[in-house]
Simulated assay, not measured.
Amino acid sequence: MNSFVVWYESTLPDMLGGQAPWAVILLFALITQLGDVWFLFLLSGVLYVGGEYVPYVGIERRRGMFIIALVLTYVALIGVLKGVLLLPRPPGATEPPPLRWIPSIFANLFIIITTAKGPGFPSGHALGATMVWGGLALVIGHGSYRVRFGITGVVVTLVSLSRLVLGVHYFVDVLAGIIFGIVVLGILNWLAENGTHPERVLLTAVVIGSLGLFVNLTFESVAAIGGAVGGWIVWQNVAEAIPDHPSTEREAITALFVGMIASGIFGVVYIFNGPYLFTFLSTATAVGTAIGAPVIGKRLS
């Protein structure tokens, strides 16, 4: 085990982390958000709620629910993997780069998005980007497969590179995250029959999240099980009442507004780690509200 850790820590001998110019670090700090939990949840929520009213990438709500389920499964899975493997991050991963050009009001946020703590293997951003963006490429009906998976490949590559530039992962971390992501996405897509049975993926997230509580009780594992349970319960009760697409533009806008509020709650809770009970209830409420947004939007409109 010790020899493996030595090999693991030598796979990227600080060739990128901390060496890039400040402007490059700032750029990749923004790019890395494309694989962050808050953005993936927001993206999947907008696609789910907006349906065909989302320009160019509109999909049926059932397949949008599949993408949300992928996000929840990713959050649950990464907690279990890191909790079992417990492999370290590169030295300096918890130290932010110099705060140049950053207004003081955004200083804390910048530190959060450019640093990382806890186990590093595999990369959660690489895993999440591969699963979610790859899932989108599978279910979106616009454009050719080559174009859709080409865009996915670019996004996953940039997100993975951003983790190296920021110095919070080794190369083997992001490589493993991509490989795990491809394998898991393939299994979940088969299980959900190309996204048409998202409830199966939601249940998978509940099972993995429950396992995570026993493997390693952390904020991430509690957030994962909270979101998965809240999402699964609400979907079981409202799935039949949710049309594949909004019936009017007003309904879509109203539902999107509700979904944006839910996504904001989820993002705030995930960024600012709170007590476990609060985290469980908040993520369950946020995800449940996002999934019920089409019904709420229909009634309000």
Rank of each mutant, 00 (worst) to 15 (best):
E220I: 09
T254I: 09
P275F: 07
S144V: 05
E251Q: 15
G209I: 11
L188K: 11
I140C: 08
Q236W: 01
L256Q: 06
T279A: 02
T152K: 01
G167S: 12
N189A: 15
I265F: 09
V147M: 05
V156S: 03
L164R: 09
W190V: 11
A255M: 07
L185K: 05
I271M: 12
E199S: 13
L256T: 10
S221Q: 13
D173Y: 02
P198N: 04
L203R: 02
W232M: 11
V207H: 00
V215H: 00
E240Y: 07
P275H: 13
S210A: 15
V234K: 04
V183E: 05
V238H: 11
G264A: 09
L213F: 07
G264L: 04
I265Y: 04
E251V: 05
I265P: 04
L175T: 14
E251H: 13
V159C: 06
L161S: 10
V229D: 09
I233S: 01
V154P: 05
P246G: 09
N237G: 13
H142W: 15
L175M: 12
A176Y: 02
L161M: 12
V147D: 11
E251N: 10
R250A: 13
R200E: 14
L211R: 01
T218Q: 15
Q236I: 02
V268S: 10
V258S: 00
G267V: 10
I140S: 08
T254V: 14
T218R: 15
A241M: 10
A224T: 06
T152V: 04
N273F: 06
I140V: 15
L185H: 04
G150H: 12
H142K: 13
G153L: 03
G212L: 08
F149I: 00
G167M: 05
H169K: 09
E240W: 09
S221F: 03
I182F: 05
A192R: 14
A224N: 06
V159H: 02
V222H: 08
V159D: 06
G195E: 00
V234I: 15
V238G: 04
S162R: 08
R148S: 09
F180Q: 01
T204Y: 06
G227Y: 06
L175G: 03
Y145T: 08
H142P: 00
V258H: 01
I265A: 15
H142E: 11
F214M: 07
V154I: 14
S247G: 10
Q236V: 05
A228I: 00
G167V: 01
S144G: 15
L185Q: 05
Y276G: 07
L213K: 00
N216V: 01
F219E: 07
T279Y: 14
I187H: 01
I182G: 00
T157I: 07
L213A: 10
V155I: 15
A241R: 15
V172N: 12
A241I: 12
T279L: 05
N194Y: 13
V183R: 01
S144C: 05
F149K: 13
S210H: 03
T254N: 07
F219S: 14
E251T: 11
Y270F: 12
I179D: 07
W235E: 05
P275T: 09
A228L: 08
I253T: 13
